[in-house]
């Protein structure tokens, strides 16, 4: 008795503050196991201009590679106080910052493990659909064998690789269009 899937619409420009209690930028209190990391995502349009009215959401496994979700039934520890979900609107410079932990590796359905990655959703005025991508950590040796990175033409893989700046913060610019357009996923 399906009525059919509900279609997507833009988040529009005026959600900030009206999306009640929406924002979670500090995902990992100090007692959460794993390597604590600072991540800055920034959002850019096809002309390279920053997008100051976007929303980022992140979803990730904990340091053991376990998702806090009933469909992850593997016998790996869950960390109390770590859900793995973050949400922030972009600031005037188009960026959002998250404090979290570096996720562990999760399995690939055909065998083997994926490299550590964070799942990212992007919403904004002008985006009629959620766009999704992944953040990987540049220099992680597991990247070389990651099945998703291997699906992507080599010239575009760098659009998914966050780089560590001089302060140790991981930065990933996300380009909605233009010559550096980020690889987005249909997931």
């Amino acid at each position: 008795m399906s009525k059919g899937l509900t279609p997507s619409q833009t988040i529009g420009p005026f959600y900030v503050g009206t999306l009640v209690k929406a924002y979670r930028q500090d995902l990992a209190p100090p007692n959460v196991a794993g390597e604590h990391v600072e991540i800055v995502l920034s959002l850019h349009d096809a002309d390279g201009m920053v997008v100051p009215d976007g929303v980022f959401e992140i979803w990730q496994a904990n340091s053991h590679g376990r998702y806090n979700h009933p469909d992850d039934r593997r016998n790996l520890p869950l960390d109390p106080g770590f859900e793995g979900f973050g949400r922030a609107s972009t600031w005037l410079d188009g960026s959002s910052q998250f404090s979290t932990i570096k996720p562990g590796r999760v399995p690939w359905p055909q065998g083997g493990l994926q490299a550590p990655h964070i799942n990212v959703s992007i919403f904004a005025r002008g985006l009629l659909n959620r766009v999704a991508t992944r953040l990987y950590f540049e220099g992680d040796p597991a990247n070389a064998e990651d099945p998703v990175l291997k699906m992507i033409e080599p010239a575009r893989r760098s659009t998914l690789l966050a780089q560590r700046d001089a302060n140790g913060t991981w930065r990933l610019p996300i380009h909605l269009g233009g010559p550096q357009e980020t690889v987005f996923f249909d997931c």
Binding site: S8, D45, W108, G126, L127, L128, G177
Partner: peptide, 30 residues
């Protein structure tokens, strides 16, 4: 079902809608 990313009549889409096809991901735990 869903809108096209590029819907010219909605003037905010040309500058923001991704142009390249999204890469289909197999459904993993992520």
């Amino acid at each position: 079902t869903h809108p096209a990313n590029l819907s010219e009549a909605y003037k905010s889409t040309p500058g923001r809608a991704p142009r390249r096809p999204a890469v289909a991901l197999p459904h993993t735990l992520s």
